[in-house]
């Protein structure tokens, strides 16, 4: 039971990030709802973001990324917001044109 008394390290944060990342990927691969896929993308970006802030934290490593990591995380958040806006617009447009939001129906470019 000594895992509650020992300080956590960088690896633990990376593992949580990896878990969120994989959950996002699985979400993207299994949801048929366009919005579900968008949510998966958000999770993936979040998982990556945890890595940035964890590498930037002074609590885990002496030679941390410092401010750079935090700023990159901020940019990621902002870009995720922008991406969500555009993707949502695309999704709504798709819904207007096809009267469905099932991505499996969107295979007109199939070879």
């Amino acid at each position: 039971m000594n895992f509650l008394t020992e300080p956590v390290g960088l690896s633990h944060f990376l593992a949580v990030g990896a878990f969120l990342f994989v959950t996002g990927v699985v979400c993207m691969a299994t949801k048929r709802n366009t919005l579900g896929i968008l949510m998966g993308v958000e999770l993936v970006l979040n998982g990556a973001n945890i890595n940035f802030v964890a590498f930037a934290s002074p609590y885990f490593r002496e030679d941390n990324l410092g401010l750079e990591g935090n700023l990159l995380a901020l940019f990621v958040i902002v870009l995720a917001a922008a991406e969500a806006a555009v993707a949502l617009a695309i999704a709504l447009n798709y819904y207007n044109n096809h009267s469905t939001i099932d991505v499996d129906k969107a295979n007109e470019l199939k070879g």
């Binding site: 968008l38 935090n70 917001a81």
Partner: peptide, 29 residues
């Protein structure tokens, strides 16, 4: 991790903004 500003932004932009946007999308469709 000590990145208080980023955490706050995460709450505001993500939880407050992006997800609300998504929920709008859900409601519209």
């Amino acid at each position: 991790t000590g990145a208080h500003f980023v955490g706050a932004m995460q709450l505001m932009i993500y939880v407050g903004g992006t997800v609300v946007l998504l929920i709008f999308g859900v409601m519209l469709t």
